Amino acid sequence: MKWENLHIAGLGTCLPDPVPVEEAVDAGRYDAERCKARGYVSVCAFDDADDSPQTAPPETAARAARVAVAQSGLGERDFALALHASIWFQGLDIYPTASYVAQGALGRQVPAYDVQQRCNGALGAIELAGAQLATGIRPGTAALITTGDRFAAPGVDRWNLAEYNVYADGGTAMVLATGGGFARILSTVTVADNALEGITRGAEPFRPAPGAAIDLTARSAAYDTTADGKQADLRTGRLIARARHQALADAGVAAGDLARIVTGSTGLFENGWHWHHLLGVDEHLTTWEYGRTTGHIGAGDWAAGLDWLLRTHALETGDKVLLFGGGAGYSLTAAVVEITALPY
């Protein structure tokens, strides 16, 4: 999809201080060999004993949102929509997190919805929000996209929940606007293969209520016993190539024209492979330098990664940036943006 009038007008993050991974290794919480193989240096994490309201996902998302909205210079009446993406428990069961975030950052009257597509929730929400703004079905020229998660024990073990990830806490936010901003979205593409949902289901039965221990590594291993894991890898690889190619083509941008690529902060794959290999670029063009210090912020990696590039003055006006990531299900979204102004 080629966009003619969609911009990023604000970014915000609310992340706890990073905790060195060696502390988890020394405490016996994170396997030393896995730590070495995955490449993380630190992970943004609240203390498990800290149950203050400020650590709850709805609150970190709302705090990040207020930063992004302030940066955008827009008011409540400018917003047509708020979307919130998350991976895990939001502090209460059967609870509309998106409404809390919208109330805390925008006000009472902006429609708010939760988007549940795992790590691709926020990146994919760019298309959802952009489409609504383009149709003009309700007043407003802007949309707010937020993320928020907290992976606290004993409910979940951030260090061993998944083979390749260590999950981070915190919230992120992005403001989209048709009236201008500091980055113009040139194109977006979302591709999916829903048959790959089994990778995160494994052999586990559906249950009438939550409460069972969560082990995504075990689920993936169970999937491999009944399905062809190599075929799953090949199908995922085809999705990656398709999304990358189509997003660049729609934007009219060559791969060599990309200044940087914001990738998900997943740990290194087997034999040191990572996103730069899959995308055919040098590692220094990606945001792994940053991601290995934050851990995987779930659906928030891309807002946080772009914000980091801008705050560290790694981008200049005119630079083209690819936001590229996916989430269990399996879906992938790619977005090509052009930096039109420097917000910091």
Rank of each mutant, 00 (worst) to 15 (best):
1 M>N: 02
8 I>C: 04
8 I>L: 12
14 C>P: 01
16 P>L: 09
19 V>H: 04
21 V>M: 13
22 E>N: 11
22 E>T: 14
25 V>C: 14
28 G>E: 06
28 G>Y: 03
33 E>S: 11
36 K>H: 11
40 Y>D: 06
42 S>Q: 10
42 S>V: 10
43 V>I: 15
49 A>E: 15
51 D>T: 13
53 P>K: 02
53 P>R: 09
54 Q>T: 11
59 E>L: 12
65 A>E: 01
67 V>Y: 04
68 A>W: 02
70 A>E: 15
71 Q>I: 01
71 Q>L: 02
73 G>E: 03
77 R>K: 14
77 R>G: 08
78 D>P: 02
78 D>T: 02
78 D>Q: 04
81 L>V: 09
82 A>W: 01
85 A>S: 14
85 A>D: 00
86 S>C: 10
86 S>M: 11
89 F>A: 03
91 G>W: 00
96 P>M: 05
98 A>Y: 00
100 Y>L: 06
100 Y>A: 11
102 A>Y: 01
105 A>W: 03
109 Q>A: 09
109 Q>N: 10
110 V>E: 01
110 V>K: 01
111 P>M: 10
115 V>W: 00
116 Q>R: 14
124 G>D: 06
124 G>C: 08
125 A>V: 05
127 E>Q: 12
129 A>P: 02
130 G>P: 06
134 A>P: 05
134 A>Y: 06
138 R>E: 13
138 R>L: 11
144 L>Q: 05
144 L>A: 07
149 D>Y: 03
151 F>E: 04
151 F>N: 03
153 A>R: 14
155 G>S: 12
159 W>G: 04
159 W>D: 10
166 V>E: 02
166 V>N: 01
169 D>T: 05
172 T>Y: 04
172 T>D: 09
180 G>I: 05
184 R>M: 05
184 R>E: 15
186 L>Y: 00
186 L>Q: 09
189 V>T: 14
190 T>R: 11
190 T>V: 04
191 V>I: 06
192 A>P: 02
194 N>S: 13
194 N>L: 13
196 L>V: 07
201 R>T: 12
203 A>H: 15
206 F>T: 08
212 A>R: 12
213 A>C: 03
215 D>I: 07
217 T>M: 05
221 A>L: 12
222 A>P: 02
223 Y>V: 07
228 D>C: 11
228 D>L: 07
231 Q>V: 14
232 A>N: 12
232 A>M: 14
234 L>C: 06
241 A>N: 08
247 A>G: 01
248 L>C: 08
249 A>M: 07
250 D>A: 12
250 D>M: 04
256 G>S: 00
256 G>T: 00
257 D>V: 06
266 T>N: 15
274 H>N: 13
276 H>T: 08
281 V>H: 01
286 T>L: 08
289 E>W: 15
290 Y>W: 11
291 G>D: 06
294 T>C: 14
294 T>F: 05
295 G>W: 07
296 H>D: 10
297 I>A: 10
299 A>P: 15
302 W>Q: 12
308 W>S: 06
308 W>Q: 09
311 R>E: 14
312 T>I: 08
312 T>S: 15
313 H>N: 12
317 T>Y: 01
320 K>A: 14
321 V>K: 01
323 L>V: 06
324 F>V: 07
325 G>Q: 07
326 G>P: 00
326 G>Q: 00
327 G>W: 03
328 A>D: 10
328 A>E: 09
334 A>I: 02
336 V>M: 05
338 E>T: 00
339 I>V: 13
342 L>S: 08
344 Y>T: 10
